[in-house]
């Protein structure tokens, strides 16, 4: 099994210094859990964040330099030497950050894609078993045909950073000539420094709170039960249960 991890470079949102996004480190972890050869692939010039990412378990990162559109460049490289498995992060950090690249790549290669992958299981007859992480701890098993693209869940286990591995990692520059394609459909607009806006504050159950003062315990229990049920936190009563 040969896996390729797509690395975007990236910066740390707080300090602005080079750092790989959490999802890409998780992707390296998933690739390592499969075993076999694992390499990094980056469309663009070798940047320091790639070496940091490699410190989490990659010996070599190929940097495709000189091309135009990242999707076209990556698709061509993957088409020329198809791996069994391509892993990506959920979202880059430092560019467009839309999380579209893996999807556009899958569309172009006509490979299947699954996102939110927290674990990879066994392969059998060209199918790979994976576990998808959903909101609030829920999980969903899935199988996908190889070759495929998997986007790692940010919370998938991250392999530790080893400084010496980062130091010794090879960032190999591969010159490519850009092919123009549809690729990313860029959105025009005006760019400026980020301004944090407060989120809307959730008013619990729409409006001011209800206060029940000194009820007797049975009354309190009934009100609590009905409220939790109305919120959908409690299964509906069984047939024939007492008052509603």
């Amino acid at each position: 099994m040969r896996s390729v991890v797509l690395l975007s470079g990236g910066i740390d949102p707080v300090s602005g210094r080079p750092a790989p996004p959490a999802g890409e480190i998780a992707a390296i972890g998933l690739a390592l859990s499969v075993g076999g050869a694992v390499g990094g692939l980056h469309a663009g010039a070798p940047v320091p964040a790639l070496r940091q990412a490699a410190g989490h378990g990659l010996e070599q990162v190929d940097c495709l330099q000189g091309g135009g559109d990242a999707v076209a460049v990556l698709a061509e490289a993957l088409f020329a030497a198809p791996p069994d498995l391509v892993l990506a992060g959920r979202q880059a950090r430092g560019g467009e950050d839309s999380g579209m690249l893996p999807y556009l790549l899958a569309e172009r290669l006509d490979w299947p894609l699954l996102s939110g992958v927290v674990a990879i299981g066994a392969t059998a007859e060209g199918w790979l078993a994976v576990t998808i992480g959903l909101a609030q701890g829920a999980r969903r098993p899935a199988q996908i045909r190889l070759p495929c693209i998997l986007c790692a869940h940010d919370a998938a286990p991250a392999p530790p950073f080893v400084f010496d591995r980062a130091r010794r990692a090879v960032l190999r520059v591969v010159p490519v000539t850009g092919e123009e394609g549809p690729g990313m459909v860029a959105v025009e607009g005006t760019e400026r420094p980020y301004r944090a806006r407060p989120r809307l504050i959730g008013t619990a159950s729409g409006g001011g709170g209800t206060v029940l003062e000194h009820p007797d315990p049975a009354e309190a229990a009934r009100v609590l039960r009905d409220h939790l049920r109305a919120l959908g936190m409690l299964a509906p009563p069984r047939e024939g249960a007492a008052d509603a």
Partner: peptide
């Protein structure tokens, strides 16, 4: 209480067993 959508002003040690009984009854 100011943050809550529903507040019950009562002793937790009395409400917890009452709710337990009610749910078990169901």
């Amino acid at each position: 209480v100011a943050r809550a959508g529903l507040s019950i002003i009562a002793d937790a040690q009395a409400v917890m067993p009452a709710l337990l009984d009610l749910l078990r009854e169901e």
